[in-house]
Design a binder for these strands. Structure first.
Length: 806
DNA sequence: AGTCACCATCGC
DNA sequence: CGATGGTGACTG
């Protein structure tokens, strides 16, 4: 009989990355691997996850205090997935297991203060005599109001921490720790008959003649079986009548959990849509694989408008018919409401939607619906990958090339990689979909890791919009200095005349991107970050886009005092102004981080634009994603090379994918579309291939470049960042670390690059220095890092498979 | 993470 | 001298 449990305490500190043993008390004998429990740890109570059982019972162990659910939270494949994440990404098992808990922790602990059992009032009076008045206030407040929490006490005085410590030391107050479970279901009371229908019917006829309200309730219950409190109130039956009828023993109350559902029901209208031959071909490969129950992955490379979503829906339907569950990942739920509504139209209440705006309680409800089998499909951002689905059949990752699938805090996992592992452990299939697959993914498809499915035709057979590349150097040579080229102006004039709509993309917000003194060449920089300040005309301030600090606009140069300060570079605000000057009658709406701060602002702008309230939608990359508006016939890209010159080996890939996405917004309806790309690098392959809608061409150039410089997919990368407020210290410990790595990592083909300062050397007063390890032997490099013990150093970040190396 | 013990330092 | 503050070890 096993009476000891090994648990992982839910504390994300690397220094406690090991199991702890606890006695399983007799009344919790059913506790097993995967259960969430409450354990005493140090002198507090902590949530923990059971990962093993043992029969032995060494002396001196503490006992598990309680269980947190009445079912195991983790099943075997969730546990194995967490284990894989912790080993691959070099994080603790607790950090990986937390991914499966909405809000990272399942309990909330709060400290209360109260009078001790035997409060020594005399001593209190003596002690208080020499102390300021606020001490007296705090103590009498605690004594009079019983257990009070810190937030309450803070309102009394500013100096609360010192005062509490003073009283605690003299034993005039004692702390009480409370544990509340987060995401508890809310309950409602329902009543049903407690006796047979015959007895109830008889009672209704005879007994209750003089009690009309109780009689009506009984009659309703004979008809409806059960009623909840709101339904009863609606029938104009009082609480008191219900209570009295319960007292007779004819009916009984029962408490049942309420599922909070922030989505109203949508009608299921799953239509049989005629599939294109490409869609049918894709499904003829995918559906048999779902039935096979072996891990298999597909890459659907489909141009925008080729109908990938319909393939996803059919594949999910096939999985559901087999009783298996589905996880659908989208890059960002706010930008992908269209795919969500398509799925909801097809599957109705079988869907649970996860997004960042859900409260922790709502997330738990969503999880409960999945566990209870009330829903079989979860759709959401990367965290939805950790949904508690026990019979997984399919994982879909839409727009798989998006960098939002990489978590930029520990554990720094990539949803694509974790999905492949979870699928392998559960015998599911994975579908990766994109118009511009990540270079690594496409390479893996060509080399057989994924089955490649290509969809080249748009559903309505519409052609891809023709793209004109405008060389801005020639514009300047012609003497035209505007940010809007002649060709773009002409296209917009035509679009406006035809009452059609245009989308303008510029991936930079603000008015001017830097401010320079023409006398001494000084560029205004943020005090806390090594970055130029951006001028925002709307608020007439200079802003740092990294620490959000606002600075007043100076009249004179802070360096030399000259009044010759000028604004350079172009952001969305300046383009908005230029457009308004060129087209005074046009209705223009700007969409960027500054105009979408409010909740749902993003959706509002897009739907107003879709409804025809505006002629031109202008904004940052968010205008390039996830919408499909038939009247948009023109797309203008102000500066196609914004990202191209960044010192990142993925700069070309980022550029190509953004251009392709933006271009894909034009001509989605019956009207033909046009695209104009303005650039200073018209001959760069990312631009030429983007203009030709030529993924293959781009891939060939890019893979060659990766091969020559030995970048992924030909090697694996690890990025090690050393950070600290002390500039000299960072450089010192980084070079020390690099020297150690050079000594240990001697495998051929392993290269240590750096240390070199991060491209933004300082952010929020923290200096960062990077070391990149390029290797064919990832697990060897990982072992070496573990051996050095740097994985749990606070000033070091280790990023396996980083998505940016800046 | 959060707690506590330990030691160095500070102010009267 | 005790009060304060920073560091490091430890949690079963």
């Amino acid at each position: 009989m096993s009476n000891t449990a090994q648990v992982i305490v839910n504390i994300p500190a690397r220094t406690i990355d090991k199991p702890f043993s606890y006695v399983i008390p007799a009344h919790l004998a059913h506790v097993d691997v995967g259960w969430r429990v409450l354990v005493p740890f140090g002198n507090r109570n902590i949530e923990a996850f059971v990962i093993g059982l043992e029969a032995e019972n060494p002396e001196g162990l503490k006992s598990i205090l309680d269980i947190l659910d009445d079912y195991p939270w983790f099943d075997n494949n969730m546990l194995a997935t967490a284990k894989w994440v912790s080993e691959y990404y070099l994080c603790s098992l607790a950090e990986a297991m937390r991914l499966f808990i909405p809000g990272h922790t399942g309990i909330k602990t709060e400290k209360y203060y109260q009078a001790p059992d035997s409060a020594d009032l005399e001593q209190a009076a003596v002690v208080l005599a020499s102390k300021p008045e606020e001490y007296r206030t705090v103590l009498s407040y605690i004594y009079e109001n019983g257990p009070v929490n810190l937030t309450h006490l803070r309102k009394l005085t500013g100096n609360i921490d010192v005062i509490l410590k003073f009283f605690l030391q003299r034993n005039l107050i004692v702390p009480v720790n409370t544990v509340t479970k987060r995401g508890r279901p809310s309950y409602k009371t329902i009543v049903n008959l407690a006796v047979s229908r015959e007895v109830a019917a008889h009672a209704e006829q005879t007994l209750l003649k003089t009690k009309p309200a109780q009689r009506r309730l009984l009659a309703e219950l004979l008809y409806h079986q059960q009623l909840d409190t709101t339904q009863i109130r609606r029938l104009n039956i009082s609480q008191n009548a219900v209570k009295q009828l319960i007292a007779t023993g004819l009916i009984t109350p029962r408490s049942v959990p309420v599922i909070r559902n922030s989505y109203s029901k949508t009608v299921t209208n799953y239509q049989n849509i005629m599939l294109t031959s490409e869609q049918q071909a894709a499904l003829s490969l995918i559906i048999p694989a779902i039935k096979d129950s072996h891990q298999k992955s597909f890459l659907i490379h489909g141009v925008t408008g080729s109908g990938k979503t319909q393939v996803y829906i059919e594949a999910v339907a096939a999985a559901r018919q087999l009783g298996r569950q589905a996880i659908i990942l989208v890059p960002e739920i706010a930008l992908t409401s269209q795919i969500v509504s398509r799925f909801r139209a097809a599957f109705g209440d079988d869907i649970v939607v996860m997004h960042s705006k859900l409260s922790v309680g709502e997330r738990h409800d969503a999880w409960r619906r999945l566990r209870a089998g009330e829903a079989g499909i979860v759709i959401g951002a990367r965290s939805a990958l950790f949904a508690p689905v026990s019979n997984l059949g399919i994982i879909i990752i839409d727009e798989e090339h998006e960098f939002t699938y990489k978590q930029e805090e520990s554990p720094r996992y990539h949803a694509r990689e974790v999905a492949l592992i979870r699928a392998k452990l559960s015998g599911s299939i994975v579908i990766l979909g994109s118009a511009t697959p990540a270079i690594e993914t496409y390479y893996e498809a060509l080399t057989g890791k994924h089955t490649l499915i290509t969809m080249q035709k748009r559903v309505d057979d519409a052609p891809m919009p023709p793209v004109t590349v405008v060389d801005m150097r020639e514009e300047l040579a012609k003497g035209r200095r505007s940010v809007i080229s002649e060709a773009l102006q002409e296209m917009l004039t035509q679009v406006l005349a035809r009452k059609e709509q245009a989308v303008i993309l510029l991936n930079r917000r603000g008015y001017s991107t830097f401010v320079l003194c023409r006398e001494c060449g000084h560029v205004l920089k943020c005090r806390h970050c090594d970055i130029a300040l951006v001028y925002h005309a709307s608020a007439n301030t200079l802003r740092c886009h990294y620490c959000q600090e606002r600075h007043a606009v100076p009249d004179t140069c802070p360096e030399c005092g000259s009044r010759y300060i000028r604004y350079f570079g172009t952001g969305t605000e300046k383009v908005e102004e230029a457009l308004a000057t060129l087209f005074p009658a046009a209705r223009i709406v700007r969409m960027d981080q500054d105009t979408t701060g409010a909740k749902m602002a993003h959706d509002k702008i897009l739907s107003a634009f879709a409804a025809g309230d505006y002629d031109i939608l202008l904004g940052t990359q968010m205008v390039a994603k996830g919408h499909d508006i038939p009247n948009v016939t023109a797309v203008g890209i102000i500066s196609a090379d914004t990202a191209l010159n960044l010192p990142d080996f993925r700069a070309a890939e980022k550029t190509f994918s953004l251009l392709t996405q933006a271009a894909g917004r034009a001509g989605r309806g019956v009207k033909a579309g046009r695209v104009i790309m303005q650039t200073y690098n018209p001959e760069h392959y990312a631009i030429t291939a983007g203009a030709d809608h030529n993924y293959q061409g781009f891939y060939q150039s890019e893979i060659q470049f990766r091969h020559q410089l030995n970048y992924p997919p030909y090697t694996k990368l690890i990025k090690i960042t050393v950070q600290s407020g002390n500039e000299a210290g960072v450089h010192h410990s980084a070079s020390q670390l690099a020297a150690q790595l050079n000594q240990l990592l001697t495998a051929t083909g392993t290269l240590i690059i750096g240390p070199f300062p991060a491209s933004i050397n300082k952010i929020k007063d923290i200096f960062r220095v990077n070391i990149i390890i390029k290797t064919h032997d990832l697990s060897g490099a990982r072992k070496c890092i573990s051996a050095l013990g740097i994985a749990n150093r606070k000033d070091i970040i280790i990023d396996i498979d980083p998505v940016n190396v800046l």
